[in-house]
C-alpha cells in the first residue's frame, strides 16, 4: 500500500478500530492529531509522527547528559519536556556535569518522573540530537541502518530511544551527514538503499 501523509484533524476512519498513537476520537470518528504517516490495518489505526518530543515509555533505553547535581542525586537532560533524576545510591561512581549516561526506564512513577536501572556511563564521545520519532529509521529493520553506518564510517554508535545519539567515529563528518540525510528523508521508502549509495559514492570520491 502506498504511504499517505496526514495532517492534524484529518479524518481517518469511522469504523470501530483499535487506536494506536497520535490519533484521537470524536463522535465515533477517528482523526489524526499530528503530521505523520498513516498506518492502518484491518483492526487498528495509528499515525507515525514526523516530529515531536519524547514521552517516557517503560523499557526504553535513553541517553541523558548530566546537567546539575543535588546532595542526593543528579538531574539529566534527555530531550524531553521533563528532567531525568538519578539518585546517588543507584550508582557506584560519582558523576560530573556533562557526563553522558545510558539507562533503561524501569518504571514510570508519574507523568514527569521515572525509575531507571542499567545505568552506564558512556566514554568520551560526541552527541547528536534529533527528534525521538526519527530513531526507528536510524536503527533500521533488524539494525540494518545502524550496522551499515558503523561499517562505512568506522564508528561506535549508541542510539537512545529519546533521540540522543552517542558516537565516536573515524569519519565524523560523513556520519553526521548521513544522520542528517536519514532525518530529513525519514518519510521516504528504500532509505537504507539510498543511504548505502550515498556512503559508497562519498567513500569512493575520497579515495
Amino acid at each position: 500500500m502506498d504511504k499517505k501523509i496526514v495532517v492534524p484533524g484529518e479524518f481517518l476512519t469511522d469504523l470501530r478500530k483499535k487506536m494506536g498513537p497520535n490519533v484521537y476520537q470524536e463522535n465515533g470518528k477517528i482523526y489524526s492529531s499530528v503530521v505523520g504517516i498513516l498506518s492502518e490495518t484491518e483492526d487498528s489505526v495509528s499515525v507515525i509522527a514526523l516530529n515531536g518530543s519524547y514521552i517516557n515509555k517503560q523499557g526504553d533505553g535513553v541517553i541523558g547528559i548530566v546537567k546539575s547535581e543535588t546532595p542526593n542525586g543528579y538531574f539529566l537532560e534527555y530531550n524531553s519536556p521533563y528532567e531525568l533524576y538519578i539518585p546517588k545510591n543507584a550508582i557506584t561512581k560519582e558523576l560530573k556535569i556533562g557526563d553522558i549516561i545510558f539507562a533503561r526506564i524501569k518504571e514510570i512513577t508519574s507523568y514527569d518522573s521515572v525509575e531507571i536501572d542499567n545505568i552506564n556511563v558512556l566514554p568520551k564521545g560526541n552527541i547528536y540530537v534529533t527528534s525521538c520519532v526519527k530513531v526507528p529509521r536510524l536503527i533500521g529493520k533488524n539494525n540494518s541502518m545502524i550496522d551499515m553506518l558503523k561499517q562505512y564510517t568506522q564508528s561506535n554508535i549508541v542510539i537512545g530511544k529519546n533521540g540522543l545519539i552517542w558516537y565516536t567515529s573515524k569519519k565524523p563528518e560523513l556520519l553526521e551527514k548521513a544522520f542528517q540525510l536519514i532525518i530529513n528523508n525519514s518519510q521516504k521508502s528504500n532509505l537504507t538503499d539510498n543511504i548505502k549509495k550515498f556512503l559508497e559514492n562519498t567513500n569512493s570520491e575520497k579515495i
Partner: peptide
C-alpha cells in the same frame, strides 16, 4: 505547531 509535532485537534 504542526511542524513541531505538537498533538492538535486540527489546524
Amino acid at each position: 505547531c504542526a511542524n513541531a509535532g505538537i498533538p492538535m485537534k486540527g489546524l
